[in-house]
Amino acid sequence: MERPRLLILGAGGHGRAVLELLRDAGFPPPLGVLDDGPASPGLPGVPHLGPLSRMAALRAEGAAAAHVALGHNATRRRLGEALLALGYALPALRHPSAIVAGSATLGAGSVAMPRSVAGAAARLGAHSILNTGAILEHDAVTGPGCHIAPGAVLGGGVRLGAEVLVGILAGIKPGTAVGDGATIALGAAVVGDVPAGATVSGVPAREKA
Rank of each mutant, 00 (worst) to 15 (best):
G80D: 08
G143M: 06
G192S: 06
S103H: 08
G87F: 00
V111R: 01
D36K: 10
L90Q: 10
G12L: 05
A189E: 01
A126E: 09
V190F: 07
L34M: 12
A120F: 13
A149L: 02
A120M: 09
T132V: 11
I172D: 12
A209M: 07
L160I: 10
L93R: 10
L106Y: 07
V164H: 07
L34P: 03
S128E: 08
A112M: 06
L93D: 10
E137G: 08
A65C: 02
S110Q: 03
H147D: 12
R23C: 02
M113E: 09
L84P: 09
A120K: 09
A64S: 15
L124T: 00
T176N: 13
A92C: 03
S116Y: 02
G167Q: 13
I168D: 05
V164G: 08
R76P: 11
A104M: 05
G15W: 03
P30M: 01
L21G: 13
A98F: 08
G167Y: 11
I184N: 05
A170L: 07
L43P: 09
G181N: 09
L79N: 00
L83A: 02
V166S: 08
P29Y: 03
L52S: 06
E20F: 11
H67A: 13
H72G: 12
G80W: 03
G10Q: 05
A104N: 01
A108F: 00
V158Y: 08
A177V: 07
H95T: 04
A65K: 03
L106I: 06
V68L: 00
A122C: 11
